[in-house]
């Protein structure tokens, strides 16, 4: 399969500590890559680098599109999002003072660059409301569209966060611990959603602590330890690799 996102030899140091130390990985079209590792392995820093939150010291991030390669290294977050690399966060990052519907509207307005039209009402933009309602239904929030995001449960906010990341029709979706802090029922909804997105062919990089979740949804798993790639391969290969046990539990 064709690669859509290529991470080449990326390094990020904080003082003398290497948070990410020469990591390379590729996400191919229609595939889900699971990124695992113990706390402090560098998973979230890698996601921050790919999404433009953190600038790498060295290395390159390339997006492969139908028109060629786009260098995303060190580009602003808004540019990377517009190019089609979307992200949902470990702690849901939504607009708390806006309703669910307005959260989705504003994300759609930003991704379609409709904010330069100050003469139209944002509630009457062709195509925006239909798409916002479709995304709300996709994540199961269709009955909560008029609710302010601050009143949503943690799980609902996670779903809204993912729906907002989908407003760009992403070429690659980055999910940072999508099931963290959720009940079993909520976790089930998120896993169902990820599987649904996978069936739609959206390539994903999923950082996750729940190994059962990550091994069930991923086509390939990359395990990191102390900023480096420790082992990568098919889920069953990585699961049985003794180095993973050592990284998580020690000798």
């Amino acid at each position: 399969m064709r690669p859509v996102l290529v991470v080449e030899d990326v390094r990020k140091y904080y003082g003398r500590v290497a948070a990410v130390d020469g990591v390379s990985l590729t996400i191919e079209e229609e595939s889900v890559v699971g990124l695992i590792g113990p706390n402090g392995a560098g998973k979230t820093t890698l996601l921050d680098i790919i999404s433009g939150v953190v600038r790498p010291d060295t290395g390159r991030i390339k997006l492969v599109t139908g028109e060629g390669e786009v260098d995303l290294t060190g580009r602003p977050i808004s540019y990377i999002t517009r190019m089609g690399v979307s992200r949902a966060f470990q702690i849901p990052n939504v607009f708390s003072g806006l309703t669910v519907l307005d959260n989705l509207r504003t994300a759609l307005i930003a991704s379609r660059r409709l904010y330069t039209r100050p003469t139209r009402s944002y509630e009457a933009l062709p195509g925006v409301d239909e798409e916002a309602h479709r995304l709300a239904s996709l994540v199961g929030l269709e009955d909560r569209v008029e609710v302010e995001a601050s009143s949503l449960s943690h799980g609902e906010r996670k779903l809204l966060d993912i729906a907002m990341a989908l407003t760009t029709k992403p070429r690659v979706l980055l999910l940072d611990e999508p099931t963290a802090g959720l009940s079993a029922v909520e976790k089930g909804r998120i896993v169902e959603l990820i599987e649904g997105l996978k069936r739609r062919g959206i390539p994903m990089l999923v950082v996750e602590h729940d190994l059962d979740v990550v091994f069930s949804v991923s086509d390939r798993v990359v395990a990191m330890h102390e900023g480096k790639v420790l082992v990568e391969g098919k889920p069953e290969e990585v699961r049985s690799d003794p180095r993973l046990r050592v990284a998580y539990f020690g000798e």
Partner: peptide, 27 residues
């Protein structure tokens, strides 16, 4: 008119969460 337009919603989004506003693609 401006505040009821997409630009006004962009302003409110920036007020609520400037980081997220940048992540969804607002300059």
């Amino acid at each position: 008119r401006i505040l009821k337009s997409p630009l006004g919603l962009a302003f409110r989004s920036i007020r609520d969460n400037p980081f997220r506003a940048e992540v969804v693609g607002y300059p």
